[in-house]
Write a protein that binds this DNA or RNA. Structure first.
Lengths: 212, 212, 212, 212
DNA sequence: CATGAATGAGCCTTCATTCAT
DNA sequence: TATGAATGAAGGCTCATTCAT
């Protein structure tokens, strides 16, 4: 699970700490903007304004508009990874899996705008940047695969690689579904109920995979 | 489940059958194009060319570029509905549900480009058109809810409304996931294997929802 | 005052009487249309529709869109000339002048839309057609010059050529002013009052030109 | 005679003095261009070129092509007002009226292109802008009404409101006529002669309005 | 003669990017 | 470093005109 090299967004500014500050401004402004109008409909002028400075300055910290999308995607994944890292307590019990599912879904609920942006706009990235982002998604699947595998002994079941993958995939995808269709799901579900039912579904799937 | 009025894309051409023909050309051309560059990056000139005629002619059959996206979305949903209508043999057995899942997944496999476009670009539609498309997605969920409910007696199980919804939703969303991530899934799965395992997962979920 | 050759608008239709009918349809439709949106904003499709047939047919009777404007201008001037011809009773009295003024102003009141179109849009004609129209305007001035000259003996005054011209010009221009600014004038004047006061003004101008 | 609020043409440029400079460039370029081809036939690219910069820059100072026409109209009226303000010496003599007429006609002679454009193209403006321009024309009429009224006592004559209006209107309209038909008038008149004869005509009209 | 679908030049406008200050 | 005016390629769309039926 070797960490891929981050794609470096070039700047003409030297002061590293300033770069950090400005980019945070860019990302925060852009997330709000993209949420509202999407990447393509947002202009660089608007991005600059949302970030709190002029276009001239914006272009001191990015090279192309696409860099902003990359910056946003990257920032979101960093947040996700960091959040998920906190759960991984390595006890190897079902509760750990349950907890991971819960944390992941709650994270998505909190950051649903960001998730939506990422999945809707990723395609607009360059091939290179796009694969970097997709890879991050697969890391997430792999993360859940790990947690699931760890919990199998305590559940006294054996699953094929494929079945583990399918379950991990289920978790990740249903999480995304909540982000995308939140407004529709909310008519029937609170996030807590959704987590509860999804967890039941996932566990029963796990337990009875081989039945039929 | 009253059918919503179709949003009519205005034309300046009078010959109805010609409209049908040209729009099919537009949709087919556009799907290929959007697949490659996305809706925003595709120009109207390119769309016209892909359809096989001039921009002038393109604009005889649409009013705005957005209409093309709407046309594509609409076309896809029509196909899905038609496909699913064919299986609905109303036997009320599990086999019917299995068949429906299979048909749906295979349809998605065949039309994964179209599906991907729809979900990636829907957000670019006008509010009105966007909701029309989203509604169609929910129709699809409801369609599966119906099939699931029908199969419950033969399975001798009872489920809450929510549980039925969640399962139907699972089917629809995992189908979409195959469309989006086909290139990644294909490393591990053929569509047949995916259908088989998803079916197992769905059925075991159904059977054991109440277990825990 | 030799009549200039009419500029011939070419057709591909042979039947002369049909041409006459169709052109009248075109002119009538176009006047209403130009009144509302002006020449440039009116499309050929709209012109055809207003005329009561298809674009294809429209183009059987004209060669370019500009032809329509020329046809309209020509038609209006024909009407004006015909109307003014009716007054010229050659009695050589002041009453004849008064009557001519009255007829001219009333004509303009009745055809103010047509006049407005002509003066607003003439500039859009080709150089050739434009001069043809302008010449017609000068014919009108000359017409009044003739009437004024005729009335001078009975008024026992002598005027220079220039003064006659200036007065004739005054009549023509103030008539146009009524057409253009009808909506504003109407707040203060009925056409009858306007005619009365203008007549007074013109005659006193005539009588006392040499005073000061 | 409360000054109407100017319709503000929006800019994305902040430097006010630069806006002033660029707009003058736009107006000057546009006048030459419109003179030659009219508003509708002139393209925005041509306007930009005539102004001396790129379209991009043009659109930094206007919002739509129509704005250019509005800018031109506005500029002309400002000049007229300024010019007439300079004479208004409030002596209340006939000479003041004569001087005003002379100044107005000379101004029109100098700016006949601009005037022609204004009257030919005003109709192409939006309803709002069109009325703003028309109002300015009426301000001009009112301005002359004021000067005429002031001169009445010294002429020992009394006129009705309508007669004053008619005379003021005569001045304004005959001024415009000079602008429109300059090329034709010049065959017979120099501007000085035209002013002289028009002045005579106007004054004799004034003096003998009530005679008959 | 009449029709109307097809064409494509060309228009207005936007916006990512640059660069002098 | 920060600014924002300048640039022009490119995009969406219109509409006069043609021509096969």
């Amino acid at each position: 699970m070797a960490e891929k090299e981050k794609i470096v967004v070039q700047t003409s500014v030297k002061d590293e700490s300033l770069i950090e500050i400005r980019r945070l401004q860019i990302v925060n402004g852009a997330v709000n903007l993209f949420k509202e109008k999407g990447f393509h409909r947002a202009t660089t002028r608007e991005i600059a304004k949302a970030a709190g400075f002029s276009i001239g300055t914006l272009y001191e910290y990015i090279r192309t508009k696409e860099d902003v999308l990359y910056l946003v995607s990257d920032h979101i994944y960093d947040k996700v990874k960091q959040q998920l890292a906190e759960i991984n307590s390595d006890t190897g019990t079902v509760d750990e899996l349950k907890e991971a599912i819960k944390q992941y879904f709650c994270l998505i609920d909190r950051m649903s705008d960001e998730f939506t942006i990422m999945y809707q706009e990723t395609k607009s990235l360059s091939k290179e940047a796009m694969h970097y982002v997709f890879d991050k998604e697969f890391e997430m699947v792999r993360l859940f695969e790990g947690i699931i595998k760890n919990s199998l002994p305590s559940l006294r079941i054996e699953l094929t690689e494929k079945e583990v993958f399918l379950t991990a995939n289920h978790i990740v995808v249903q999480g995304q579904a909540w982000a995308f269709r939140k407004w529709a799901f909310k008519k029937r579900y609170t996030i807590e109920e959704y987590v509860e039912d999804q967890t039941k579904l996932i566990l029963s799937g796990l337990l009875h995979f081989q039945d039929k």
